[in-house]
Amino acid sequence: MTGYAAPIQRLIQELGRLPGIGEKTATRLAMFILRRPDEEARRLAESILDVKEKIRFCSVCFNLAEGELCPVCSDPARDRERICVVEDPDSLTAIEESGSFRGTYHVLHGALAPLDGIGPDQIRIRELSERLLRGGIREVIVATNPSVQGESTALLIMRLLKEKGVEVTRIALGVPVGGDLRYTDKMTLAKAMEHRRGM
């Protein structure tokens, strides 16, 4: 990297801080940016600054928002009696793209991970409890990932919301649509059998 001019070195260093980007990839990206028209580089820089300046957490659900409320919470057509709890904004987007849910969300920004020292105070679980205290919620759908961390987070939420007069449900686990039972792992198959439904 020493052969590059100082501004290029700085750009490589900054790009190298991004997750999954090593020095070689950072150098390739820096060279790509250098070769693009000025306008394109300016747009990239401005969009980074824009995100940092304008994006904040939605005051209701903690999704990423451009103002006080995120697009879901500011939509009057949403069913506000149902909250779907997700680990992160990416999970929220995935559910939104499925078009299967018309309620609102609560984004925890993480999951319980005792081995990494992440407990209830490091995720937005207290805020969920406070939201329920304000009333008007009939159902909480826990849509954390079906991993050890996601499952333990779901169990903690169930413990927290027990006896609060709210129905708590968990997203189903089972065989993926278009999947093949022969190639489905034992645990998923066991869950699919356990959570089978009447037809």
Partner: peptide, 16 residues
């Protein structure tokens, strides 16, 4: 240990 701290916190505040 990190998990010991998390366990203690949950047992203290979230055990019915």
């Amino acid at each position: 240990l990190r998990s010991v701290s998390v366990l203690a916190e949950i047992r203290k505040r979230y055990t019915p």
